[in-house]
Each structure stands twice: as C-alpha cells, then as structure tokens.
Design a protein around this nucleic acid. Structure first.
Lengths: 103, 103
DNA sequence: ACAATTAGTCAGAAAATCATGACCACCCAA
DNA sequence: TTGGGTGGTCATGATTTTCTGACTAATTGT
C-alpha cells in the first residue's frame, strides 16, 4: 500500500492497487448483494481467514468504499455496507467483466 | 500470481491481479502513446529497475496484452506494442479514471 | 581499441502481503 | 456454568513481490 511515484504517475494505479488484494474483489462482490457480516463472510469465502478479512474490510472502510454499522439488535452484530463511493466502483467491475468477454 | 478460489470466484479478480503489479499500469499508460522500448521505459519510470520491468513486460506479453517486436534496423532494438487484447483493456482504465472523478 | 547503448539474466536480499493459532470480550441459550 | 455464536486482535511465520548489483552479449560510435 505504498505509492510515491512522481513524474510518471498513472491515475489508475492507485485505485487499481486499492482494489486488488486477495480478498477485496470477492468482498466487493458479496457486499453488492446487500450488507455483509464478518463471520458469514469468513464462511462464504473459502480459504479465507479472520486476519486477512479483517484487514481487507478495514482498508476498504478507510478508503471509504464500505461502511461499518454496529447493529444493536437481536444478536448484536456488525454489518458492512457498500458506501456511496463504493457504488462508484461498480462500473469498473462491469468494464472488467466486459473486457473479459472480448479478450 | 496465484489464484485457486473455487466457490466464490469473482470474475474480475483474475484480471484485476494481472493489471495490478507495481509497474504494469504505468507501462500500459506509456504503451498507449505508441511502441515502447526497454531502456527508454527504464529511464521514464522513475524508481523502476530492469528486473521488475523485464518481469512485468514478459508477463504482459504472456497474457497477450503486449507484443514484443525485434526491430532489425538502425540501432537494432526491441519494441513493445499494445496488442488487440491490450486494446480491450482501455475501457477499464477509462472507467477507473471516471470513478476517480466521482469519488 | 575503448566506451556506450541496446536488452536483458541471475542470485540474493529486502519488503510487502497473506496465513496460522492463540487469545479476548461480549452475549445468549441450555 | 459451560458451550457456542458474535467480531475481532496479536505475534509470528510463510509466501509473494520487488529491488539491488553483478554480469552477459551484440552493436555502434570515437
């Protein structure tokens, strides 16, 4: 997560790096279908682990793509929602999927 | 460059990973303006090094995004061109730049 | 003949990313 | 009161990615 390039900075590379962790695209995909919970994600993403998911979720939250809501109801849990900025990323994934069809 | 996820595979994550090395986006940007030569790239991308560029170029070529041409002329050199598949990636970078404006 | 430019490779080190297992605190039900 | 579910943190280790410096080899310039 380090970036320091000056002269030749590519506008896309920062965002590209922010989206490209091992679990972030899959988290993104899950949260598109509605709010996501930590342990549910841990079960759904096979091969994942607490630490990596925790880090990925925190980074995506810090970048403003996800919002973390503490739900003080029934079983007292946490929900991660796609934020407004997060919604702006949807066309990127769309265009990636379009490119895949053309390649 | 390892991918093995089964169930929850996100279609975008493979391509996202292929585009997201430290130098690949900048190489892509350069090669958009026409063919690119190795040492010129090394000079243009400040902070880069032979090894990383060599690896990135080879991977991008193996993925079919770049074509390596040996030019048997004047100073006998190599040119990297954007391939047909490579052109299919342009909308991805476009949508990333669009997202950046909106975020 | 000597230096520079072309385009790399190779071994090894450093840095970044990802995974493992132990642990924590809270809540709820049996 | 003990066991499971909630959502994590922490230290450590393994793996992947990136960088460094030495080296090669052909070609061209002085």
């Amino acid at each position: 997560m380090t970036t320091q390039n000056t002269s030749t900075e590519c506008p896309a590379s920062r965002l590209l790096k922010q989206l490209s962790g091992k679990w972030k695209p899959q988290i993104f995909l899950q949260v598109l279908n509605g709010p996501v919970r930590f342990n549910q994600l841990l079960r759904d993403l096979e091969g994942s682990n607490k630490q990596s998911l925790s880090t990925a979720l925190r980074e995506m939250e810090e970048l403003g793509f996800l919002q973390r809501h503490i739900i003080s109801e029934k079983p007292l849990h946490v929900e991660y929602h796609l934020s407004e900025s997060g919604h702006q990323l949807i066309p990127i994934f769309r265009s990636i999927e379009d490119a895949l069809k053309a390649i």
